[in-house]
């Protein structure tokens, strides 16, 4: 799920960045530092959309660095248990398949793939129904339900299932 929220961060800046462009420097540094990182609380920071305010700088004793408290608006992405997500399949093997939704890595075990879908090995391993009408292979798009999440410093892992109503392949690149 995406959220647009306000976060705060203390930015430390080297004195060489001070001057006319101080504000720009803070913002570009903030983007570099924050975008693409994960936190267990908010999930994956997708993009910074605006700066609310930049507080008064505080000189750190002993160094020339100055700390600025910055409040910024950003879009975050965090998967939740029970959420329905659309993801792209990255790898299919006999254990199940792996899919990605942006930075989120999702594993769907073959226990959680409908029983009528069977694994087919070969150059392009896939799960196929017995009549061949539905096929999950690399680059297929699937709709799945998250049943477990774990957020690391840089990665988000999820366990998903497609063994439920209205879940499964939504777009098959092979058929197109």
């Amino acid at each position: 799920m995406f959220f647009h929220i306000v976060l705060e961060r203390n930015m430390q800046l080297h004195p060489r960045h001070f001057g006319r462009n101080l504000r720009d420097n803070i913002v570009s540094k903030l983007m570099k530092d924050v975008e693409g990182t994960c936190s267990g609380r908010h999930g994956f920071v997708v993009a910074i959309t605006g700066i609310e305010n930049i507080g008064k700088g505080l000189i750190r004793d002993g160094t020339g660095f100055v700390t600025f408290p910055v409040k910024y608006q950003c879009v975050v992405f965090r998967p939740f248990k029970g959420e329905i997500l659309e993801a792209v399949v990255t790898m299919v093997n006999k254990m199940g398949f792996f899919a990605e939704a942006g930075p989120v890595q999702i594993f769907v075990s073959n226990h959680l793939i409908p029983d009528d879908m069977e694994f087919q090995s070969g150059d392009m391993p896939n799960y196929t129904t017995s009549d061949g009408s539905v096929k999950i292979q690399k680059d297929s798009e699937v709709r799945l339900k998250i049943i477990g999440t774990r957020v690391d410093a840089t990665e988000i892992f999820c366990i998903g299932t497609i063994k439920d109503d209205f879940l499964g392949v939504i777009n098959d690149p092979a058929a197109a």
Binding site: I5, E8, R9, N10, Q12, H42, R60, F65, P69, K71
Partner: peptide, 17 residues
């Protein structure tokens, strides 16, 4: 290297989250 070690979330966003 000092710069990266101070990610502080404000209380307001904490509450929200």
């Amino acid at each position: 290297s000092l710069v990266t070690d101070s990610p502080v979330d404000s209380s307001s966003s904490d509450d929200f989250a």
